[in-house]
Amino acid sequence: MASPAIDDYLKTIYHHTEWQDDRITPSQLAAELGLAPSSVTEMVQKLAAQGLVTHRPYGPIALSEEGERRAAAIIRRHRLIETWLVSEFGYAWDEVHDEAEVLEHAISDRLLEGIDERLGRPRFDPHGDAIPDAAGHVHREPFVLLAQAPAGHVGRVLRVSDRDPELLRAVESAGVAVGTTVTVTDAAALRIGTASVSLPDAAADAVWLSI
């Protein structure tokens, strides 16, 4: 049964392991969703009963095969809508998240397919996050978090987290965008060509580069 609340849980669990390997814990899930731990525990039990997650008491949470399929489907909607808003309506990349949160539950499958076709079947959204295809598959290349990249590392910007619109604006103002080739100076500084670029400290944990 369709449920925005369930979709939000599944999306959050899915997001957690997209760019690192550790599974999400109940306390982390509660913090991400801004909910009381007791409420999260109750919902996780319901999700497990529906076969959407696997979980043991106090242990980490993982999506089941069905949970992964459902999470990928709603994330596909969200990221295609973000891409559509930027491409067709002139939204900036820091403006699209909240709009997509509303629209992902409202548009029909037919309209979604039309958006995907019109956009040329994009593989990535404006922030560099992979858009699952209709079968739920994603395509990513090896990556490293800026905070973990050694000085002198050269790579393309693969992704900038969309969690903080202010940080997105600061990164954009610095001339850094998805696809930009950069050389790492340190965790808060890059070089683009011969130009040195300073980023907010928070960018170290919000920018991913190709290896």
Rank of each mutant, 00 (worst) to 15 (best):
residue 22 D to F: 03
residue 179 G to L: 12
residue 195 A to G: 12
residue 87 S to N: 11
residue 202 A to M: 08
residue 118 R to A: 14
residue 12 T to A: 12
residue 43 M to P: 00
residue 139 H to L: 14
residue 102 V to T: 14
residue 24 I to E: 04
residue 34 G to P: 00
residue 108 S to C: 06
residue 62 A to H: 03
residue 46 K to C: 02
residue 87 S to K: 12
residue 154 V to W: 01
residue 19 W to Q: 10
residue 112 L to S: 11
residue 189 A to V: 09
residue 120 G to T: 15
residue 40 V to L: 00
residue 172 E to G: 08
residue 136 G to E: 13
residue 37 P to S: 04
residue 111 L to F: 14
residue 166 E to P: 00
residue 48 A to Y: 03
residue 139 H to K: 05
residue 5 A to K: 02
residue 86 V to K: 06
residue 59 G to A: 12
residue 211 I to N: 10
residue 170 A to Y: 09
residue 193 G to M: 13
residue 114 G to D: 15
residue 29 L to M: 09
residue 24 I to D: 07
residue 103 L to T: 11
residue 50 Q to M: 13
residue 108 S to W: 04
residue 51 G to W: 09
residue 162 D to G: 12
residue 145 L to K: 15
residue 161 S to L: 10
residue 123 R to I: 04
residue 82 E to A: 03
residue 1 M to I: 00
residue 105 H to W: 11
residue 199 L to Q: 01
residue 60 P to R: 04
residue 84 W to H: 07
residue 67 G to P: 08
residue 21 D to C: 05
residue 173 S to Q: 14
residue 83 T to V: 03
residue 189 A to Y: 05
residue 58 Y to W: 01
residue 123 R to E: 15
residue 113 E to Y: 10
residue 105 H to R: 13
residue 42 E to Y: 14
residue 36 A to T: 07
residue 111 L to H: 15
residue 56 R to H: 07
residue 151 A to H: 12
residue 126 P to K: 06
residue 45 Q to P: 00
residue 26 P to W: 02
residue 158 L to G: 02
